[in-house]
Computed example of a mutant assay.
Amino acid sequence: MRVGIDARFITRHPRRGIGNYSLHVVAALVKLYPAVQFFLYIAIPDSEGILPSGPNVTVRQLKMPAYPLWEQVALPRAAREDRLDILHGLGNTAPIFVPANVRMVLSLMDVMFLQTGEFVPKPTNRYQAWGRHYRRFVSPRCARAADHVITISDFSRKDILDLIPGLDPARVHVTFLSCDAVFQHQRSAEPVQRPAGGGARPYIFTLGANDPRKNTVRLVTAYLALVKEHGIEHDLVISGYAGWEQSEAYQLVKDAGAAARVKFLGFIDIQELVALYRNAELFVYPSLYEGFGIPILEAFSSGCPVIASNVTSIPEVAGDAALCVDPLSVEAIKTTMLQVLQDDALRATLAQKGYARARQFTWEETARQTFAIYEACLNKPTVQ
């Protein structure tokens, strides 16, 4: 079997959701299936040297002046030149047309870009706006043309089938995700190094953004109410928040005179993120829309109790290992945080359940399910 993979998100900096998914699933595929020849197609050099390597891996840098030409022209041409059996697009889009003897698999994380409404992120620049238009045009077409579509939760599968009419449900499959192994941690009596961003007080941890769907304003409002009404000693640490100085959330904090209690951090390296999870008393993830929700698994793996939203895909990931709340209710977020912070036994139970829950999600299993889809592709008669 000769499998080509769009691996360009792996070498992109900074590497985020799709890039991390691509890296982990490709590494597991290469390791589990040494008899398969994998062709990894990239747009920029692998400056980190992070791409999987081995006798069954060929890396090719395809050069094109614009991303649509890279995907719609260079990638199909490479599929033909490398005599692929399967071409796998890992990043929500793929070539609409491929050589007739090449089977197409599309990973479609979610279809939020096809949604409308107040919780859909607004483009912040012309490039993002153009990218959304491109996805709106390309994704439905290549999803219908693909032999199989992979998504990452039952919620996303339903969304895809609702928003892309004409898709055969039998060709849309769910493969759950995992998180980086660096987060795996068995709590012990040995202290973990205190993160620089955490400060001296005990703290609640979250990931924030100006993006309304991350729901940071409601969480900050709930936290400030806890400080005012119950005098909690915990700080709030918000990581991954680009441009927080001009945010509504920061304005709320300033107006409440709580700037010393709420710490806003930009993007941090993974080791600092690990330390923040491991030392937190509680992780709160009040997102309004997620295709999966890897941060929940990161917190679970770190032994950190979790409060999360009860909407979209999040309950699928959390199971019974987190307390799930209505993310639109500041009161629900506030009272649930207070409940967890005041109950040592509950925190210990949540941490234990979360750690066990995280063990159910592995990249090896994601790769096995992905490879089963490749095999299903080859069982379909080839168009002559």
Rank of each mutant, 00 (worst) to 15 (best):
G266R: 12
V172G: 01
T216L: 06
H185I: 10
I268S: 13
V172E: 07
Y277D: 05
L161T: 12
V237Q: 03
P140L: 04
G243Y: 01
I232P: 03
K254Q: 12
T175S: 13
F267V: 11
K263Q: 14
R187M: 10
G197F: 00
D162R: 11
T206Q: 11
D162F: 05
R261A: 09
Y134V: 04
A258I: 00
I150W: 02
R261D: 07
G166P: 02
D162E: 10
R218H: 09
G231I: 05
G197P: 02
L219P: 02
Q193R: 15
Y241R: 02
L226R: 00
G208F: 06
C142G: 01
C179Q: 11
R187H: 13
D211L: 08
T221F: 01
K158Y: 08
N210C: 04
D235F: 10
K254Y: 03
D211I: 07
D154R: 15
A222W: 03
L177P: 13
F137A: 11
A196N: 07
A200P: 13
L177N: 08
D168L: 08
A225L: 10
I160F: 02
Y134Q: 03
F176S: 15
D269C: 09
F155W: 02
C179S: 05
D180T: 05
I160A: 02
G266A: 12
R194N: 10
E272P: 06
D154F: 09
E229W: 02
G231A: 10
R278D: 10
S239T: 11
L226K: 00
T216V: 04
G243T: 06
D162I: 00
G231H: 04
V220F: 11
D162C: 07
Y277C: 01
L252M: 12
D154P: 00
N215F: 04
P212K: 13
R157N: 12
Q246N: 15
Y250V: 02
A225G: 13
L224W: 01
G208D: 03
G199P: 05
D235Y: 13
V217Y: 14
H230S: 13
R201L: 12
V237T: 06
F264Y: 00
V274E: 10
A196K: 08
F267H: 15
A209C: 08
V262R: 07
Q271H: 13
S139V: 03
A170S: 14
G257E: 03
R213F: 08
A181L: 10
P202M: 00
P191S: 00
T216M: 10
I150A: 03
Q251E: 15
N215G: 06
G197W: 02
G197D: 01
Q271Y: 09
A146T: 06
C142A: 00
G199V: 00
A196R: 08
P140H: 04
Q246F: 07
V174P: 04
F137H: 09
A259Q: 15
A146M: 06
T216D: 08
Q184H: 15
A143W: 09
L224R: 00
S156T: 10
N210G: 14
A222F: 01
P165I: 07
E190C: 01
S239K: 14
L163Q: 13
G197V: 01
A143V: 08
L224E: 11
A258V: 08
V192K: 03
R213P: 07
C179P: 00
Q271T: 14
Q186P: 06
Q246C: 08
C142R: 00
L252E: 05
Q184Y: 15
A143E: 06
A260E: 14
K158V: 09
